[in-house]
Simulated assay, not measured.
Amino acid sequence: MCLETPALAGGAASATSPDRLRGERYDFALPAQALGDSLEAIGRLAGVAVLVDERYARQPAPALSGRHAVMEALRRLLDGSGLRIRQTDGEAIVVYAPPADGPARASANAAAPLAARDIPGARAGGADFSGYIGRVQKALLRTLCGNAAARPGGYRLALQLRLDGGGQVARMRLLDTTGSDRVDAAVTRAIQGMDVGAPPPAGMPQPVSVLLLPGGTHCAAPRRPAE
């Protein structure tokens, strides 16, 4: 799962359109660095949520310079990586590995989850929000795993959360469908009003963008009743 806190407050993402992402050009001067950091920088510049599973966020990305449209810039960054781009509805872009990568790779990646402090967006404006982001991760998985209709593992989930001053989800928005209207509704019901357990730190950018991919070990196996 990848949680990012891009500068998308106030509805900047809603102004994004597929045509703008392919036509409007931006000046890029990104060094060679972790892929998650490059994607976060592109998202901030273009005002769009660019989501990548945290397992791939630490992969190296080449330097990127020049004037490019967003989709062209992403293709240059991902060239040769095996990762693909899926645009949802003009409000978010999901970077993912196709199923052809096989279960062996998915299993290996699931065995080494990224620490919260290493998630793109965990540090912003000189502040470290990794502790709170880790708390959001746990609350989200606990909430979804406790709901049979929304239990993760078999669907891709891309959403944005806005937390109130008490640490409850005041607003949530699905950025893309899970592929099932029933699961979409169950996820929305489960997460709306979810309590993280602590107020967000002062200055933490919102909304918080979340990506959860199918596969891997998301929920603990249910306990067997004592005999």
Rank of each mutant, 00 (worst) to 15 (best):
C2N: 15
E24G: 03
M1W: 01
R123H: 01
G215C: 10
P60F: 05
P207L: 09
L144Q: 03
P120F: 02
L74S: 05
Q33C: 08
M71F: 09
R25T: 15
Y26H: 14
R182C: 00
G134H: 04
Y56G: 06
A97Q: 12
A106K: 12
G146A: 10
G179W: 03
R189Q: 13
P18W: 07
R189L: 08
A221R: 13
G203I: 10
P201G: 09
P18A: 12
P120L: 09
D164T: 09
L163V: 09
A9H: 02
M1D: 05
T177F: 10
V183H: 00
A158Y: 00
A57M: 06
P225E: 12
T143H: 01
M71D: 11
D164H: 09
S180L: 04
A12R: 15
R173E: 14
E54N: 09
P99E: 15
A124Q: 09
T177C: 10
A198V: 12
I133K: 07
V187R: 05
A13D: 14
G11Q: 13
N147M: 11
L78Y: 06
A7G: 11
G165K: 13
L3C: 01
Y155P: 01
A185T: 07
A12K: 14
F28M: 03
A69K: 04
G126Y: 09
Y132I: 11
V187Q: 00
G167D: 07
Q160E: 13
V208E: 02
R105D: 06
D181I: 09
T188K: 08
L144W: 01
A185W: 00
L35E: 06
G126F: 11
D79K: 14
A34L: 10
A57K: 03
T16K: 10
L45D: 05
I133Y: 00
Q33F: 01
V136L: 10
P60A: 13
M194I: 08
P62C: 10
G23E: 12
L64I: 08
A111T: 07
D89L: 11
R67N: 08
Q206Y: 02
A116N: 04
G36I: 08
S130M: 05
D89N: 15
R142H: 06
